[in-house]
Each structure stands twice: as structure tokens, then as C-alpha cells.
Amino acid sequence: MTAQEKFSHINEQGKANMVDVTEKQITQRQAIAEGYIKMSQQAFDLLKNNQHAKGDVLSVAQIAGIQGAKKCSDLIPLCHPLMLSKVQIEFQILDDSQQVRIQALCKLSGQTGVEMEALTAVSVAALTLFDMCKAVDPLMEISGIRVLKKQGGKSGDWQVEKVK
């Protein structure tokens, strides 16, 4: 068995290799990812009331997440640049745990999946929330970044057992 047959991102010489998707069928593909950021009560209250000194924290993080998904191939080596048809970022305020749940949906018609774009969108949105709130709480915690659901492509559809 050759290196390329064993590992899709390694060529015959054992070097990094971008997978050739030329012959793959174009299908509708979608991925949903989530992540969380936990913060102090003070930072959380300022966020909820849109009173942070840097402005509308959630709106800026939403735009940043969308931009992050669009720039995924610039950040992740060997990731294909994709023509995304939809990127949606949603936030859920979790009062009981002083957390913001970030969810990203990425969609396209293409030859490769969008899981990395959804994960990047969540990550960049979380980092933006951190950046905009760090003056009040430099000890925030980003956690739980994962893919919740994937649709389309050769490997088919799947989702985590229990989606919150």
C-alpha cells in the first residue's frame, strides 16, 4: 500500500499533499459546529446589555465568524478554497452558566465538505468575543468547539447523539 493510499494528505514521497477532488461529484453539503465562551458575571452582564466599551460585541463576533469561514483555506494548510453559499452564526446567551453558545452553519454545492469552515467560524467568533471582552475579564474560557452535524458527500450524513 502506498503512502497516498494510506493517507489522503501525504504523497508518494511522504510530503504534504492537497487532495485532488477534481473527479468528485458536486453535491449539496452542510456542516453545523458549536463552541462556548464562559466569562465573569460582570463581562457577561455587559455583553447581555450591549454595554461593553468596544461596542456591539455580538454583531462584531458574528461578522468575524462569517469572515473566518470564508478565510478557512488561508488558515488551514491543504484545505480547499470553497465557494460558500451560506454562513450563519447564531449566539445563545446561557444565563445559568455565564456562557455564550456559538453555532455556525456553513453550506455549499461542491466537491468537498465544509466542516473545517464551520469550525473556523465558531473559533473566530469565540476569539472575537474574547478580544472584545478581555478588558473586563482576561480569564474567559473558550471550550467545546466541535462539529454537531454534517450532511452530503461520499461519507453521508451524521450528527452527534444529542444536539443541545
Rank of each mutant, 00 (worst) to 15 (best):
T2K: 06
A3C: 08
E5H: 15
F7T: 03
S8E: 06
I10N: 05
E12Y: 14
A16H: 01
N17M: 08
V19Y: 05
T22H: 09
T22E: 07
Q25G: 06
T27S: 10
A31T: 10
A33G: 09
A33V: 11
I37F: 07
I37P: 05
S40W: 09
A43W: 08
L47C: 07
H52D: 10
K54H: 09
V57D: 04
V57E: 04
Q67E: 14
A69H: 11
S73G: 07
I76Q: 06
L84G: 02
S85Y: 04
K86Q: 09
E90P: 05
Q92P: 00
D95C: 07
S97D: 10
V100G: 04
R101V: 13
I102D: 02
L108W: 03
G110F: 04
T112K: 04
V114P: 01
M116P: 02
E117H: 15
A118Q: 09
T120E: 03
T128F: 10
L129C: 06
F130T: 02
D137Y: 12
E141K: 11
E141T: 12
S143M: 07
S143T: 14
G144K: 07
R146D: 08
V147C: 12
K150Y: 01
G156F: 06
Q159E: 11
E161L: 10
E161P: 01
V163Y: 00
